[in-house]
Design a protein around this nucleic acid. Structure first.
Lengths: 406, 406
DNA sequence: ACCAATTTGTTCGCAGGAAGAACAAAACGC
DNA sequence: GCGTTTTGTTCTTCCTGCGAACAAATTGGT
């Protein structure tokens, strides 16, 4: 029961049904490939005639491909259809505080090249550096297919429509138009998105095929900060001012430790990697000295995990406390949005076996119903570059998304 | 960019464009009535021919009406169109812990009759009582129009599709099928919904006409408990297990006061009416004795407000603290979802002038961006029966909602 | 009083595309 | 080779958006 916005609606034309059915068919091919025309007709509940017509249109556009003959017990053998992905390339860019990652991949997420360099904070210089690398990658892998766009993920608020980065404290950017410059420098369409949202997009568009198409889930990223990408009704929630998903700065305790945002007791101040390290070292995080002390000692989150695994009881305790607070925050999300599942990404997942019990206990304590207490929490295994996969989704998703109508 | 669910999609047929445009037109009439065909054609950007055809269809169905001639500086005078609401009736039912409210109203929300009775907790008995009253109302106001359905609002989780009440602690119901029984007893279609969601629906469908069509907002109800109805992209969020919006049981402080849900420090335990009264009396809320003490003294939330207004400094302080915690919880919603606005309903609104400053201060302290800190918080004035209006929306909304497509 | 101008509302013909039936093609077993 | 079965194409029908032409209603100027 969606309300129609009388200021910003989209009329249906004669060709609207075709657009809709085209996208449905394309998504069915995507989820069930390899698949025959006759099978598609059965799944869609339409005649094979219509499928033929839609398929030939998609074939002409190069959206799908005919593959081998399939096998059938009786009758004519079907020709199988696939989505064309292998020779359609994307440049995925992940700008992080320390380093920037650039990956060349195809629409499926298969990695062709990956390079990283130290992040340049000056927007113009970053664009120049990126443009040079994109140019090199496009030239070097020209034979593998055509690059159809650049997907870029940044920490901070982004206005998807204009492509402007409204505010990124980590990079020190305010209302910067990187998209326009990068498009001009490379001649490729550029899509920019906020990092946790991109991770949610990666789950939505590149997650396991034929999954139950979870249309309601939350992706929580735990690294230096804590953020969340929220998906409701198959759509990402961006918020009115582009700042939705900032669960990281919801207070768990008004008297809690100081957070980098200036407030006290933020969820992030309990469960971010920095918080875990600070807890292990027995330091208070926020007073600037504490933070520098953490940095000086050169102990990172991964070191804490390693020590916990090799018998350091204090490290183990620090991690378990992180797990407990992680669970409390997740319980908040369960109560607020009751998603069908919550994905967790970031370095914590490497210690999941050490903290899972604490996480689940905390959720059970706080969940309102037994069903909610059982909400699946799915750690995304490390090393899958969820942000880069999100960047790929930024380019690939528009081809598969439902047409906007009404 | 909505993802198409390949398990549960809806094909477009030949008549899909018509359905879509029909609903757009109907909504335009609703928002701009009285309005002429030519004006609609201009607003929709289509020829007048198509408008004529759609309008005659809607006229034939009785969805809209032709009214007076309008006035124009030159040329033929237009005939104005209206949505037909006056003679289309709804029975709205609000089942609360103490009393049940039954209202007869038209589609516009104009009240024709309102009665209340003490809530019967036994489902079968309640249905019987309701059926008798509906029968009486329908008979008594037969001349005013035809009753097109019953909208029912209950405290607790509801499965909208099946109409079953999954769990209502307040009423002591678990997996009860009131809808089927009430439909059988009255012969009218029945829609059931959870209370905070219904309040959000009331805002969405019966809120001020031609408002900016806020498609992203949250309605927070503060009474005995604290709940929220969340609207994203023009759609209500129900959650995977029908328990979305339970912000009331997110902890503000793990060491805080006990909540009726059993946990500690819930937002509800700080800002519900009971919490305010308990704070005023200096009692701890949750231990069963405290709660009974509050009841025994016979002081309600309204009494605290009255005393605060007549110079009782302790009452004033208790309310202001409630305001502060209310603000902290609202800040959480702002950070999590960044809605375009937050509506607040319930008895607190009667003391809004006393607490507004505290609310706004708390939000400012916790919001991440200046824009988020300025998020409009709109108290709904008391006595407007938002839950009953939500019940009306349950019946009226399907006529205006966007058709589900793709 | 009549005519031009202007605006509203209706009708009609064209064309895009869903829907389904008829038809052609391919494979298998007898 | 021939019937059977399944796949894929083609063709006809009909719904409906879309634009153009037309009818109706009103005002103001001559």
């Amino acid at each position: 029961m969606r309300k129609i916005n009388t200021r910003d609606f989209k009329l249906a034309t004669r060709s609207t049904p075709r657009e809709i059915n085209r996208q449905i068919l394309l998504n069915l091919v995507r989820d069930h490939q390899p698949v025959s025309r006759a099978d598609l007709a059965r799944r869609m509940g339409v005649g094979r005639g219509m499928v033929t017509s839609l398929v030939s249109e998609l074939l002409a556009e190069g959206a799908i491909l005919e593959g081998d003959m399939g096998d059938a017990p009786r009758g004519r053998k079907p020709t199988m259809l696939h989505v064309r992905t292998r020779d359609r390339l994307v440049v995925a860019v992940d700008v992080r505080f320390t380093r920037t990652f650039v990956m060349l991949s195809d629409f499926d997420g298969t990695q062709l090249a990956l390079e990283t360099f130290e992040t340049v904070f000056e927007p113009a210089a970053l664009v120049e550096e990126l443009a040079a690398r994109v140019h090199r990658l496009v030239g070097g892998y020209g034979a593998a297919g055509a690059v159809e766009g650049i997907g870029m993920v940044v920490p901070g608020m982004v206005d998807r429509r204009t492509g402007r980065i409204l505010n990124s404290p980590q990079l020190g950017w305010r209302d910067v138009d990187v998209r326009g410059d990068l498009e001009a420098a490379t001649g490729l369409p550029v899509h920019i998105e906020n990092a946790p949202i991109a991770c949610a997009l990666a789950q939505m568009w590149l997650g396991q095929r034929g999954g139950d198409g979870a249309a309601d889930f939350v992706y929580v990223t735990v690294s230096d900060g804590v953020g969340a990408g929220v998906v409701v009704n198959g759509q990402v929630v961006r918020g009115h001012g582009h700042t939705a998903g900032e669960f990281g700065h919801v207070p768990l305790d008004p008297e809690g430790p100081y957070c980098l945002c200036g407030a006290r007791g933020c969820w992030e101040a309990y469960t971010s990697n920095l918080a875990t390290v600070a807890r292990y070292l027995g330091q208070d995080l926020a007073p600037e000295q504490g933070r520098r002390a953490v940095k000086r000692l050169g102990i990172g989150f991964d070191d804490v995990v390693t020590r916990a695994r090799t018998g350091d009881a204090r490290a183990r305790a620090a991690l378990q406390e992180t797990g407990r607070y992680l669970g409390l925050g997740l319980a908040m999300i369960v109560n607020a949005l009751n998603p069908s599942r919550i994905f967790v990404g970031g370095e914590v997942t490497s210690a999941w076996d050490l903290i899972e019990e604490q996480v689940r206990t905390a959720i059970s304590e706080r969940a309102l119903t037994p069903a909610a207490a059982r909400s699946p929490i799915i750690p995304e295994q490390a090393g899958t570059h969820p942000r880069l996969r999100g960047a790929i989704a930024l380019v690939a998703a528009p081809l598969f998304a439902a047409p906007q109508v009404a």
